[in-house]
Design a protein around this nucleic acid. Structure first.
Lengths: 253, 253
DNA sequence: CATTGCAAGATTGGATCCAATTTCCCCCTA
DNA sequence: TAGGGGGAAATTGGATCCAATCTTGCAATG
């Protein structure tokens, strides 16, 4: 048991925490594309020295969220709308493939039950006939878990890794759901119904085709929205990601 | 338009060099799975301090070639044969998709010519009716460039990134070609002929299907070989058993 | 004899220090 | 006035130092 004031689990390094924080700031849009990441500034903003910060930056650069240039440091990478579209296109293929793989395997009853629970949860959230903003977080959780369940049932860790990477784009992660058109969400959730059932019944190709359209359509919607207003997809959700790791033992200032 | 990440003579940091060296050692099998990467040992083996080494290790860990455990350091990751099979399955889908994307675009004549040059080069290398070991490097280069050409013609940078990652497995990169059965190589190169022509003629689905089989079959062959003899695939190349990197102890570069 | 406790050495993670490169501003010149 | 030097400040990359954690080996104990 460590004596940390901020409960620092011994098996987590501060570089990991820093990486997680910076990643979050970028994905939330707090650190905008093109912005330079000054090491001194960031390190004392986060209350750590430059060493773990630089480790974190190296990792994030490897993930593709920031760009590095020797002797000039890191800056937040900018993604074009075309890259966003490409990400959805590839994700559609990968998740479609995951559906096919999952359908070709024997799905345990417990997982079928989980599918049903998730779909039913979605039905419940949409049962009002309107999109209550307060229900968005719950719907988003359901959606994320639905997609992840399929990917885990496919049993191919590469798919999981690559799909996660396609979410590694500012303003374009699976946390973003365009929650403003009931018919579109309803139809999207209807896809969930069909996909779950198709997988359960071993209809791999059909599940694949459904998923491809499911993802591609979402991508088209988002791309369209981004073209009109690049930042309009960021809905009000203040998470106050500031103030983790407040005081380390030597504050330097 | 940004290509050629490695050809730019821009300043290279020593962390990048170290990363490249370690990556190479792992992919070549010189650092075997499970092996612990001791920082002191490695850093003076490579003639740098622990700082750039640790940056390099953090990057390589992010790529998935090594695993990290807090306070216990890094060790070379072991991949199961099943993970290798999975990698080929995903790569097949991705490269197949790349074929379809490429075929749906307008291919510049210069690229068509490049296709023809590569395919002709392959014909030449196989024209003897046997597999001369001395021709393997040339065939491998042709093969790598053929696949990369398709991926670049697809114009989707995510595909490129993900396919590269599937090569990030020890003993299973595109540098490995099972160069011992003429008929198999001949048929494989015949796939190249058909794929190139299908793409040039806009037959996307056909090109996709050809590529999927092309990759999956190579994967099956390799997996089979790995099951019999996990290290047998490394044979044809120079082994350099103790040819450790000459430690540049004198210091800077 | 197996197990536990513990201390010393080994190893890692983080902080600090120094050198090399870049950036920026001011002055000079055509 | 526009366009270069040139040098100081800012910033990065790498080396070294220190603290925390892990590992190892041995002795004490049941």
């Amino acid at each position: 048991m460590t004596t940390a004031t901020t409960s620092l689990p011994a098996e987590i390094t501060s570089a990991d925490l820093v990486a997680k924080t910076i990643r979050e700031k970028i994905l939330e849009g707090e650190l905008e594309p093109g912005r330079r990441l000054q090491q001194d500034h960031l390190s004392d903003m986060l209350g750590v020295s430059r060493t773990p910060l630089r480790t974190a930056l190296a990792m994030i650069a490897q993930e593709g969220l920031i760009e590095y240039e020797a002797n000039r440091g890191y800056r937040v990478r900018a993604f074009s709308i075309s890259e966003v579209r490409d990400a959805f296109a590839v994700r559609a293929q990968l998740e479609g493939f995951a559906c096919r793989c999952a359908a070709e395997r024997k799905i345990p009853d417990a997982m079928i039950a989980r599918f049903e629970a998730l779909v039913t949860e979605g039905d419940r959230l949409l049962s009002g006939g309107t999109l209550d903003p307060s229900l968005l977080p719950a719907y988003r959780r359901m959606n994320v878990e639905f997609h992840q369940l399929i990917i885990s049932l496919a049993g191919n860790s590469w798919i999981e890794s690559f799909v996660r990477q396609t979410h590694n784009v500012p303003l374009v992660s699976d946390r973003i759901i365009l929650w403003d058109n009931y018919d579109i969400i309803y139809r999207s959730h209807d896809d969930h119904h069909r996909i779950a059932k198709a997988i359960a019944q071993g209809e791999g190709i059909r599940a694949e085709n459904l998923m491809i359209e499911h993802v591609i359509f979402a991508g088209k919607l988002l791309a369209e929205r981004l073209e009109m207003d690049p930042r309009g997809v960021l809905m009000p959700q203040s998470k106050t990601p500031n103030g983790f790791l407040k005081s380390r033992k030597n504050g330097k200032l």
